[in-house]
Design a protein around this nucleic acid. Structure first.
Lengths: 130, 130
DNA sequence: TTTCTCTATTGACAAATTGCAAATAGTGTG
DNA sequence: CACACTATTTGCAATTTGTCAATAGAGAAA
């Protein structure tokens, strides 16, 4: 299955703890309210995700829909362009978001440990020059 | 160049801010002192990187050597097995590590923001049920 | 001395992810 | 009608990650 995201093999190893801020960011934005991709694309800046190619967001949304984290319908009221697909978070998505927050908290702790270990070692190095 | 790590195209987008704790972890371990892959494999547990396939570590070390972050020599004193390749961090590697620490700090801030935003929104949701 | 196990590293390939360019399409403006 | 902007989709190339098997030395057991 080259290309395509796959649903079974992610996180097989553990080297990807910190990967993919995009999923949780989209879930949180949708948790605040239903929205369509083009809007989300701009709102992602809040989480440091700027300059993303739109297709990446759309693809992620579709994948999340496959996983049952979000649902989509075509927007009834049409506005400044072609029909828009509006996404809403599901109960499953809420759970996934909660898991993400838990996971990100652990990641943050690891980073803290890492940075602390680094600074401590740097300080010891300076000590050696006495 | 399918396969191989590539040296020019990483970080092209910005969705991979938090990717790859492995590189900085290895650099920090080597900053503490020269070591060979098999030892590093065990020491990585300190940073939550357990259960990694050895070939991943060896590949990463080779790639970092290509980038000039580390150098290696064959261990003079042979001990409990085949010759061991011993890695040391370079001045370039020190710089790379410092950049990693900076980057990880920013990542941590983003996670903090994210978790805060999540909890705030959850709290507001509860408020709505009054 | 053959065999097994543990230490140690490498190479090749399959699987998965990500980036990017282009196609499609509706709406409003000049 | 041409053009710009909003919106979404598709396909493929580029890159990264995961896994397996090969190679190999040393020491213990048989």
């Amino acid at each position: 299955m080259p290309g395509g995201r796959g649903h079974k093999w992610r996180w097989r190893g553990c080297s990807r703890r910190m990967v993919r801020f995009l999923d949780p960011a989209l879930l949180l934005l949708l948790h605040r309210g239903r929205a369509h991709g083009y809007t989300l694309l701009e709102q992602l800046a809040e989480f440091g995700l700027t300059g993303l190619n739109p297709s990446v967001i759309y693809r992620t949304l579709r994948d999340m829909e496959d996983m049952g984290w979000v649902t989509s319908t075509w927007d009834e009221e049409q506005t400044q362009g072609p029909p828009r697909r509006v996404y809403s978070i599901t109960a499953e998505g809420d759970n996934a978001l909660a898991r993400w927050v838990q996971d990100l908290g652990e990641t943050r702790d690891l980073i803290d440990h890492f940075v602390t270990a680094y600074q401590q070692h740097i300080t010891e190095d300076e000590g050696e020059y006495h």
